[in-house]
Simulated scan of single mutants.
Amino acid sequence: MISNLSHINESAAIGEGVQIDPFTMIHEDVVIGEGTWIGSNVTIFPGARIGKNCKIFPGAVISAIPQDLKFQGEETLVEIGDNTTIRECVTISRGTIDKKTTKIGSNCLLMAYVHIAHDCIVGNNVIIANSVQVAGHVIVDDWAIIGGSSAIHQFVKVGMHSMISGGSLVRKDVPPFTKAAREPLSYAGVNSLGLRRRGFSSETISHIQDVYRFLFLNSLNNSRALEEIEVNLPATKERDEIVNFIRSSERGVMKGYIN
């Protein structure tokens, strides 16, 4: 299951049933969970912690040192959860002194040529389409979908169950449950189709839409909109997720609807 044409450092911890194809290089201080497949011409640098039953396609580079001039060679990690697929030529940089770790969750799909920079945190069940470039310190919450060829500015946060249109320039935070499109990136409605596919009821989706009417369709500033939401709409985990996301945003959130 492990090609003799690959180089595996003797200190690397390789789980049962791992398949490693020819011409792959695995360095020291690497852990690979059982049942994972690693294609040819993959390079896995020190600090990689890869889960079970992952698929890593040819040309991927995992846990290279960050492209950050402040990096001083500190020992940091890349952690990848179970059942995650990493397609051709994806690059994932390990962390810096800031968070120590770059994290990719379980059941994710990173399509070809995606770059995930240092200290990013990507949740579970996330889909990142071809050629998306994610700068350092970005947070992508569970179930988010990012369209191909998008570029995400450092320190941006992408909320859970959101969907970002292909080719987007993401300079501001994208709140949960939303669709984001246009230039500059703006609110394009609630991700209703995605929410239905994941079992959200029509009542819950309608409630989320009510929250965003206050935020993005009523010409209120964010502080006033949040006050109106808390006064006029019942407390639910979805409402509170949105309110807390907006309140904690450091970069500010994307614009409201633009004709």
Rank of each mutant, 00 (worst) to 15 (best):
R171N: 09
G194T: 05
E250L: 11
V243A: 02
H27S: 13
E241W: 03
M160W: 00
T236Y: 12
I246W: 03
E230G: 05
R182H: 01
K237H: 09
M163T: 00
V170S: 04
I62F: 10
S63I: 14
N9A: 14
V190W: 04
F57I: 03
I97M: 11
Y187N: 07
I127R: 05
W143I: 01
G95F: 08
P66C: 09
E34A: 15
A112S: 15
G256L: 05
A180C: 14
M163P: 01
M160Y: 00
H27I: 00
I32M: 08
G159T: 02
L69H: 06
V211P: 02
F216L: 09
V30D: 07
W37S: 11
E250D: 06
S206W: 00
N218K: 15
V132H: 08
N130V: 05
P234M: 13
R198M: 00
F216N: 13
L195M: 13
A13F: 03
G252M: 03
C108L: 10
G123Q: 11
S219E: 15
M163K: 01
S162V: 01
N107Q: 11
V31I: 15
C54I: 13
T91Y: 02
N244M: 03
I258K: 01
I164C: 06
G194D: 11
G136K: 03
A48M: 13
T204M: 11
I86Y: 11
A60M: 02
A129G: 00
D98I: 13
G95K: 12
N221C: 03
H27V: 01
I20A: 10
T102R: 06
S249P: 11
R171Y: 06
L233M: 11
I65W: 06
V18C: 10
T178N: 05
T76E: 10
S11T: 12
G17T: 13
Q133F: 05
V134T: 14
T204R: 15
V132M: 10
F23I: 04
M25C: 10
I258S: 01
G47T: 09
V132F: 11
K103A: 09
Y212L: 02
K55L: 14
V31M: 13
E34M: 08
V158K: 00
V126P: 10
G33Q: 05
C108R: 06
Q209G: 00
T236W: 09
V42I: 08
Q19V: 14
I2A: 09
K103Q: 14
F45P: 02
L77D: 10
D68E: 12
K52T: 04
G39T: 02
R224L: 15
S11F: 00
V122Y: 06
A112Y: 03
L217D: 02
V42C: 07
N232P: 14
K99A: 07
Y187C: 06
Y257T: 04
C54K: 12
F57W: 13
